[in-house]
Computed example of a mutant assay.
Amino acid sequence: MSHWSNWNWTSPQEFIILGFSGWSPGLRVLLFALLLPLYLATLAGNMLILGLAIVDPALHTPMYFFLGSLSAVEVAYTLVLTPRMLAGFLLPPGGQAVAVSTCAAQMGLFVALGGSECLLLASMALDRYLAICRPLYYPQLMTSGLCWCLLASCCVGGSLLALGLTTAIFQLPFCHGGLVNHVFCDLPAVLVLACGNRELQEHVLLAACLLLLVLPLALILLSYTRVLVVILSVGGAAGRRKAFNTVASHLTVAVLHYGCATAMYARPLGSRSVEDDKLVSLIYINLTPLLYPAIYTLRNRDMQGALQRVVCQRTPVTIHQADLS
């Protein structure tokens, strides 16, 4: 890593994404061989969910509207981060050079898509709360128009936050060089390169974590607590089991997403370990997006039935709004 110390830019014209370029070539090739199938499986799984939610009329319900939207966001999310990260494993030691504008664009898209996903998970919790706790009013409340409004609000909210964070970080002077010791242009990894007073940017980052991670997760937990109370108090054993599976699937995804994101971003810069952040990011980028389609398809009889109907060209059947088992 001694050759990295020769970089000493006062105003970098490009950034160098170091990634794991300090590791041995054999280990990096092994990581590439392990992660490429995971990436392809993630794309295939999320595109399958999105395709089924579009083509099967039996899945044209609010729950699967949001699930298909979540899969679309996941596909875009992995396309923004993973191909460049995988290419970095095969490049010679020294890191991967990217233009400042490219780094800013990757950061902005990452925050926009990640923020939209956080808000979408909260919208899914709202949908399940209304379906189970307000079943008589659910068809009048969760209309197609409301679904599209919630989706648009999630996308706009994530995009505005991304624009604000990216602008706040890249308006700073980068007097500590352009070596980004990470696998992509992540916010904390770029922010540590800035000089001067970074207090405002750190506060903005922590405030964004509060808005996108802590508050939505608290609302999700409150909603599902209420849902569990209703499930245990009414209905037969079969209905309780189906509704409980709905909550378990959504809650598992929410805990995975918010837990990993909180571990990565809801900490001051001074308490971070760069190497630990890189390893956590490697798991967050490659494993959690793969778990989502696995959770929603392997345990979901509606999705399994839709896949069978598409493959076998069977006549679609009607499903219950809250049936996710």
Score class of each variant (00 low, 15 high):
residue 86 L to W: 04
residue 88 G to R: 06
residue 51 G to P: 02
residue 31 L to R: 08
residue 165 L to A: 13
residue 102 T to L: 03
residue 238 A to T: 15
residue 132 I to F: 07
residue 123 S to H: 14
residue 120 L to F: 12
residue 24 S to Y: 15
residue 248 A to S: 11
residue 267 R to C: 00
residue 104 A to P: 00
residue 117 E to T: 10
residue 131 A to W: 03
residue 282 L to M: 09
residue 60 H to F: 05
residue 44 A to H: 03
residue 6 N to G: 04
residue 11 S to M: 07
residue 161 L to I: 13
residue 232 L to G: 14
residue 320 H to S: 09
residue 133 C to G: 07
residue 310 V to P: 00
residue 184 F to Q: 09
residue 277 D to N: 12
residue 183 V to R: 08
residue 175 C to D: 08
residue 256 L to H: 11
residue 157 G to I: 09
residue 27 L to E: 13
residue 293 P to M: 14
residue 82 T to C: 02
residue 162 A to Y: 03
residue 206 L to I: 04
residue 157 G to D: 10
residue 191 L to F: 04
residue 186 D to H: 03
residue 74 E to C: 06
residue 175 C to E: 11
residue 139 P to K: 15
residue 222 L to G: 13
residue 9 W to C: 08
residue 25 P to W: 10
residue 302 D to M: 07
residue 140 Q to M: 11
residue 151 L to D: 00
residue 30 L to Y: 04
residue 302 D to Q: 15
residue 189 A to Y: 07
residue 101 S to E: 10
residue 17 I to W: 08
residue 18 L to F: 03
residue 232 L to H: 14
residue 79 L to D: 02
residue 173 P to Y: 01
residue 199 E to D: 13
residue 295 I to R: 08
residue 83 P to K: 11
residue 101 S to C: 03
residue 207 A to M: 15
residue 129 Y to D: 05
residue 220 I to C: 04
residue 29 V to F: 07
residue 268 P to T: 09
residue 148 W to F: 11
residue 194 A to I: 07
residue 276 D to S: 11
residue 312 C to F: 12
residue 227 V to E: 06
residue 257 H to Q: 10
residue 92 P to C: 07
residue 68 G to K: 06
residue 289 P to I: 05
residue 176 H to R: 11
residue 317 V to C: 03
residue 218 A to V: 07
residue 218 A to Y: 10
residue 206 L to R: 06
residue 173 P to R: 10
residue 79 L to A: 05
residue 256 L to N: 10
residue 72 A to P: 02
residue 283 I to L: 12
residue 286 N to P: 00
residue 178 G to S: 05
residue 304 Q to E: 09
residue 23 W to R: 14
residue 233 S to Q: 15
residue 30 L to P: 01
residue 294 A to P: 00
residue 218 A to L: 12
residue 132 I to A: 04
residue 128 R to P: 00
residue 108 G to K: 13
residue 62 P to L: 11
residue 159 S to M: 08
residue 232 L to N: 13
residue 314 R to P: 00
residue 232 L to Q: 15
residue 303 M to K: 06
residue 289 P to K: 03
residue 37 P to M: 10
residue 185 C to S: 15
residue 140 Q to P: 01
residue 290 L to A: 01
residue 22 G to P: 02
residue 132 I to N: 02
residue 284 Y to D: 01
residue 37 P to V: 10
residue 303 M to E: 04
residue 241 R to Q: 13
residue 23 W to V: 02
residue 52 L to E: 01
residue 79 L to T: 04
residue 158 G to P: 04
residue 214 V to T: 13
residue 14 E to Q: 14
residue 314 R to H: 12
residue 151 L to I: 12
residue 309 R to F: 00
residue 171 Q to H: 09
residue 119 L to E: 04
